[in-house]
Simulated scan of single mutants.
Amino acid sequence: MSLTKQFLEKGKGIIATIEKQEPVIQEVAELFARSILNGRMVHLFGSGHSRIMVEEMWPRYGSFPGFNPIVELSLSFHNLVVGANGQRQAMFLENVPGLAARILRNFDTDERDTALVISSSGCNVVPIEMAEEFQKRNIKVVALVSKLHLEGSSSKKSDGKKLTDFADYTLDTGAPLGDAMIYLNGLDSPVAPGSTLGGVLLINSIKAEVASILHKNGKSPKVLSSGKIVGEQRAIDLFESAYDEHAHLMAKLYENIGRHQ
């Protein structure tokens, strides 16, 4: 079997894993939709490559307002790899205790908010503490992890707790321990990771379910759309109105900052 076919077969396994989680996906969608219907937001956080899933949710074509993408560049800016702003620093910083609390200090959250925290291993300090901080604020947390990778890894948090210890719901990408899925003859380290594939499937399944719930409840989402589908003017109108709605929602996270500290 060719390597491409091997990867695609592994991908089919990931799809099957996601499919089995449909009941949880629907519960999570209900939770997130409730926040948006209440005029609040779903906070999204992921360090490292988990940032991909944050930006997959919002903003991009086929997505809509209601999500607060918390992308901390010091934890997720990989382009330079080495030197200033390099990957070594990012990997060090994602295990610095207390950083999650400093990040969340910038937002006036509400118990009606919800949160999605993404971490393949679920063992790095900042994502774990981010979920912990959300729960301290009585905010429901959904963890998106790779279950086999999490179970086979040790937490870097001093008390040994993992991301799932601070989650109300857990979703599994279906990726294997170590993430990479393809072995080559004579090479001891596998290539071609699978967590992004599973993560994107989960994100977009949730997105579709949330959109349906909003639409059924009289709050049709302002979806960022291509002019090739909805017409150029309609696409422009949606773009402007969606970004305006996002700005208004974000304003709520800043207007009372520090007054309840």
Rank of each mutant, 00 (worst) to 15 (best):
D113T: 15
G86R: 09
V81K: 03
F92P: 01
D113F: 15
H78I: 10
L75S: 06
Y169N: 00
L73Y: 14
S47W: 03
K20P: 11
L177H: 08
I18S: 06
A100N: 06
S63M: 06
V117R: 02
S226W: 04
G199R: 04
S212Q: 09
N217G: 05
Y169E: 01
D237M: 03
E245A: 13
H260K: 08
W58M: 00
T114Q: 02
P65V: 14
D165L: 06
S35K: 12
M130K: 12
R88M: 02
F92Y: 13
E132H: 13
R259H: 11
A235H: 09
I70V: 12
L150S: 11
I25M: 05
A180Q: 07
I128L: 04
E133C: 12
I203K: 04
L148W: 09
P69F: 15
I25G: 08
S225Q: 10
G39Q: 01
V145S: 04
A251I: 07
R137S: 03
M57E: 00
Q233Y: 09
G11T: 08
I182T: 04
L238E: 01
M57I: 03
V54P: 01
E30A: 11
I15E: 02
K20G: 05
S47F: 07
K12M: 05
I236N: 00
T4D: 07
V141K: 04
V81M: 03
R102L: 07
V210K: 05
F64Y: 12
R51T: 07
N204M: 01
V210I: 06
E19D: 15
G231V: 13
V82A: 08
L150F: 12
N217R: 13
L44H: 07
S226E: 03
W58E: 00
P127V: 12
L177D: 04
S155T: 14
F45Q: 00
E132S: 11
D108K: 15
M250H: 13
S50K: 12
K147T: 12
S76T: 09
V24N: 09
G98L: 00
D188P: 02
Q87D: 03
L93G: 02
A143I: 07
M57C: 06
A167C: 08
L202A: 09
G160A: 09
L214S: 08
K162W: 05
K136E: 01
G86K: 10
K219R: 15
G83F: 13
S220K: 12
L144Y: 12
V28S: 03
S189K: 14
S35G: 15
E56F: 13
T4R: 11
G199Y: 06
C123F: 08
P176C: 01
E9L: 08
N106R: 10
N185A: 07
M250D: 06
A101Y: 09
S120V: 15
M1P: 00
E240Y: 14
G231C: 06
S195E: 04
V126K: 03
M53W: 07
G160L: 07
V81N: 05
M181A: 01
V223T: 02
Y243N: 01
R259M: 01
V125K: 13
E22L: 09
I139L: 02
N185C: 02
P65T: 14
G186C: 03
Q6A: 10
L163E: 02
H49L: 03
P221Q: 10
A208K: 15
G48Y: 13
K147Q: 12
D165G: 05
